[in-house]
């Protein structure tokens, strides 16, 4: 278990938990970050993280990515 912000590029991860306020949590869910979903880290830079989730590329800043708890597949 680790925050998405720590995950290196190329890793395939499973979303475990969302640690953020309810509103952000809902929005993340709508964008596809549901528990148990697979996400592939495309890029992890100082600007933020790009992941591929449900066939869509999503860019997040580090703050948001820290609140997304993931586990290696």
């Amino acid at each position: 278990m680790m925050p998405l912000a720590m995950a290196p590029a190329g890793e395939i991860l499973i979303i475990k938990n969302l640690r953020c306020n309810e509103e952000t949590k809902k929005h993340l869910l709508e964008m596809g970050f549901s528990t148990g979903e697979k996400a592939e880290v495309i890029k992890n830079t100082s600007s933020g993280i790009i992941v591929n989730i449900k066939g869509v590329k999503i860019a997040l800043n580090r703050g948001l990515a820290t609140g997304i708890i993931v586990e290696k597949e």
Binding site: T24, M31, I50, V56, I58, A59, L60, N61, G63, L64
Partner: peptide, 11 residues
């Protein structure tokens, strides 16, 4: 508060 940045990167 500052909203986090989340954005779809379209093809």
């Amino acid at each position: 508060e500052n909203s986090g940045f989340i954005m779809e990167l379209p093809k």
